[in-house]
Design a protein around this nucleic acid. Sequence first.
DNA 1: CTGAAAGCGCTTACAG
DNA 2: CTGAAAGCGCTTACAG
Lengths: 346, 346
Amino acid sequence: MPEQGSGRAATLEDVARVAGVSRASVSRVVNGKPDVAPRIVEVVQQAIATTGYVPNRAARALVTRRAGTALVVVSGADRSVEGPWGPGEVLADPFFGRLAGGLMSSLRPRDVHPVLMLALTDDERARVVSYVREGSADGVLLVSAEAPDPLPGQLVDAGVPVVLFSRPDHALPVGYVDVDNRAGARLAVDHLVARGCRRLGIVTGPLGVPGAQDRLEGFVEAMAAHGLEPLPPVAGTFSVDSGMAATRELLDAGVDGVFASNDNMGVGAVLAAQERGLVVPDDVAVVGFDDSTAALMCRPALTTVRQPIETMAAQMARLLLEQLDRTDGPVEPTLYAPTLVVRGSA
Amino acid sequence: MPEQGSGRAATLEDVARVAGVSRASVSRVVNGKPDVAPRIVEVVQQAIATTGYVPNRAARALVTRRAGTALVVVSGADRSVEGPWGPGEVLADPFFGRLAGGLMSSLRPRDVHPVLMLALTDDERARVVSYVREGSADGVLLVSAEAPDPLPGQLVDAGVPVVLFSRPDHALPVGYVDVDNRAGARLAVDHLVARGCRRLGIVTGPLGVPGAQDRLEGFVEAMAAHGLEPLPPVAGTFSVDSGMAATRELLDAGVDGVFASNDNMGVGAVLAAQERGLVVPDDVAVVGFDDSTAALMCRPALTTVRQPIETMAAQMARLLLEQLDRTDGPVEPTLYAPTLVVRGSA
DNA sequence: CTGAAAGCGCTTACAG
DNA sequence: CTGAAAGCGCTTACAG
């Protein structure tokens, strides 16, 4: 077996010598360039095999000015209080897991590797910008966990290629993918009303987050369309606990149908109802949002509005790669249609 | 503001010219080398500020032979059937989120960036090895999701620096960190017995996974120490569903105390008991393992054996960095003590 | 304490 | 279709 970490690794030079051709030729076959004589291709591949050659990425990046990596960052404003699970808590959100998986799947075939970074402080945000400027990554795939988030603006200002997951919190010339949040809320309301609920309430996400805002507006519109008066909305923070707390308020107000703006809070809604001895979905029906693994963590399992995350992640990757090729040109956002996944909670 | 993506980025050369010193001097102050005249430090920092200089990572890596990144990989055997959430499912495990967070926190101060990779197929495993051999990462931090896992052996054979989370499935000269799984199982059993349970059952993880095996053995030993006869163990796959299924069997056998080998299955145990109309913890008490966010997803919340993941992650990073400096020397594993987190389920 | 010079391992015009 | 040569942007002995 060639090159077992023994001695120094084989270089292009070594391969060229063994194959008896120039370094340029080796480079051409390694990179699959056209117009190379079959004879040369063969002898070079031979030499690569016997030397165990693997191209040095740094050397290649230095000349091509392409790192072959994308920075995947989860950002948000400073959270002074850290949860008991530390910074990992953001990553531990099942929703993020699904997104990360989708991103990885769509990046891999294009041969770009995802570097993970958290950007919750000014210092960390600065590091994100530096990382790209030093050429360590070709661009950024950003998902904001909170709003307002200064990072998208900083990235745009620095001329860093970036694609966001979900609409930025203020107008910005930047590409993003998003689900049609209003349509999703409508799906939830229609379903709840169809099964007989009349006193509907919403547990919203943090007010400043655009997606949360859109879901609230969609909820209100859908209610109006049904000629129904919604209970006053109650805000949560996308956590299970906040979902429970918010739902208790709705319960006090007499809800019989809860639309939670994400699955974690949907789980919280189910738990809150059950802690009052209520039966879900008979006494209170609950619909969540996302279709994350959290939806299966409660009984009855959560009926939820599914975002086509994997598709959206693939589109994010595509938009970023496009942006790298033609640095000019506008970046238009892409909106995806949500679907309803009916399970036991509504 | 300097260098806004306009024109080409400033290089060492540019800084040197502006500062009126040699490139070597600039390099020295950029890297904080000692023995540089204060006068030079000052003028260089000045020039860096006005040029907006950021070192090119590829150029640096080419000469230092250090990428400044570590590959974080989740590996396992091929799983022919993919879950409804695709490959993201592995990452969506709340346990992994906590680990990833810990790894990131401990890597950051050492200025190494985590590149994420999944290695579920032979092809992906080969890519992991290549990635390090091409110099894109300095080493690997590996967590196996399943056993048997060929990757640790392949990495060792290729001479790639690697540290594992948890004991490998067969003897290997490789560093790893692990929790004292037997002690953890003992903690669970002692607690269950202390609260009056006598007919204890265990939901194990997949048989081949060393940690699952250790927890089972610890469980059996602890039972023996109490002079108790355990119910026949039932195996799960670390998922909520498998925990439910396994627990139904234990319930049929008349358990009054369940030790689940991870929190996901612990949640499943609680759900299974409740679906039979049983009250947790009065009729059946449940103890999980890990202390992941899943533990809070059910009511009553899960009593669980906590692994000091953040500490373990930090140690993984430390072991890897040490290994990079002195490529020789043995790597001894580190074992951590688990603690019991008492919540409502037991 | 500082600078001139070599060299890290590639890719890419440019001739031929 | 192929090769000689320049150059990407750094770091690091080596002199001085």
